[in-house]
Design a protein around this nucleic acid. Structure first.
Lengths: 222, 222
DNA sequence: CCATCATCGTACTTTAGGGTACGTTTTCGC
DNA sequence: GCGAAAACGTACCCTAAAGTACGATGATGG
């Protein structure tokens, strides 16, 4: 039942200096599996509500193995947040088409933004980060830089260009970006994170975005 | 060393049907002391970070007494949030002077609003409520109704009147109120709750408010 | 094939903390 | 004053959960 190892060796030796031996690969994928399970648990149950034993059980593995990857709950939590905020940022591949008329471009952008921001997973992440910010100060900073700041900076670039073309009144572009994103979430985000409502239906998203963009343009058009 | 009780009896019997006997008074003040200590601890350390034993110790009393007032940690937490959100709402005695020009009235209102909202105590309350909203669903709802909703409704009333006078363009007044409060916190609140910054200096508050009111009026003036 | 390293299963230790029990002391109502 | 109710002090129970130990059972690399 043994296949020739030479095949594997050949692949391994194919010009790559950092040897990704089978063990390394396996280790990496195991680590990933742990983070997957842990992310789900932390997002669903919060920090205190998540147990290491529970994660180990769900993984099917033993506790010793889990500890060999993450020697403490805090470290695991850190790794989870790192991964989750990163995924959050990546999924938020926001596009601003300079060819579109400004109202269209902003509407598209805001729709994607609000859609992403209001799914239960995002709300859970917000709750987790904000709830633990006092106990894990670094984490809050990292999250802020990766998610809200990044988004606003992207938007600010577009707005800056629009100001240069005279399509928008001149103003601190980063502040303007903060105003637009804030207008988008003005009516619903507080209710979502407080648990007053659970989700934002698509038609309400469209409505909120339309109003937000209208208000924004009324204030920022030359 | 015993003074005559008849004095106390006289006071007690002075026409009040609901007898506030010394015991009742004492009980009430003890309950208050407990809530005071517990509030501080929950706000500073979060739900999981607060221990019943710690509260009892800080009170100087015994655990039995604490449990005789609040038979479980959950119930104590509920009472604390009730008290704290109520206090929050009361301290936010926002005034809108209909005699002032609209820009002045809104600037005054927003300054008070943002000042109150950015002190560390408010940030701690936000973190607590949002962080535990998933585990204590009722609580999130109560908080939302008492604090953000109440404020926005008050503001909406003023805006509605201003619209009636033709000082503002006609629009859903509650939505307009949400937009104004949102513009006030647009630039700093996220950073505060994430722990990127700890406080908002007075001059920055003034700046944020001025900009927010300007943007708002540009969008909502007829 | 064999040495090695990872994983598994499981049992264990330890600590924290919610909650209880109870005898003693203080306070209060009358 | 006296009896009842509340508060105190303290020791205790019990469970959950972080983290450890270790021998058995694989998988990997040479």
């Amino acid at each position: 039942m043994m296949e020739e190892r030479s095949q594997g060796d050949h692949l391994e030796g194919s010009g790559d200096c950092a040897a990704p031996s089978r063990r390394e690969v396996r280790r990496e994928s195991r680590r990933d599996a742990i983070l997957e399970v842990a992310s789900a648990s932390f997002l669903e149950n919060g920090y205190a509500g998540t147990t290491m034993s529970g994660i180990a059980a769900e993984l099917g593995g033993s506790k010793g193995t889990l500890w060999s990857y993450f020697p403490s709950k805090d470290l695991l939590f850190g790794a989870v947040l790192d991964r989750v905020t990163d995924a959050f940022r990546q999924q938020l591949t926001l596009t601003l088409n300079a060819a579109d008329p400004i109202e269209t471009a902003l509407t598209k952008f805001c729709t994607k933004y609000l859609t992403k921001l209001t799914v239960p997973q995002s709300i859970a992440l917000h709750r987790l980060v904000i709830g633990e910010a006092a106990r894990f100060p670094e984490m809050g900073r990292i999250f802020y830089e990766r998610a809200p700041w990044k988004t606003q900076e992207l938007l600010a670039g577009y707005l800056e260009a629009a100001m240069d073309c005279g399509k928008l009144r001149r103003h601190d572009s980063f502040a303007a970006a903060q105003y637009l994103t804030s207008l988008c979430i003005a009516r619903s985000h507080q209710q979502l994170v407080s648990g007053v409502i659970d989700e934002l239906p698509a038609d309400r998203i469209r409505e909120e975005v339309d109003h937000a963009v209208t208000v924004f343009l009324r204030a920022f058009r030359p």
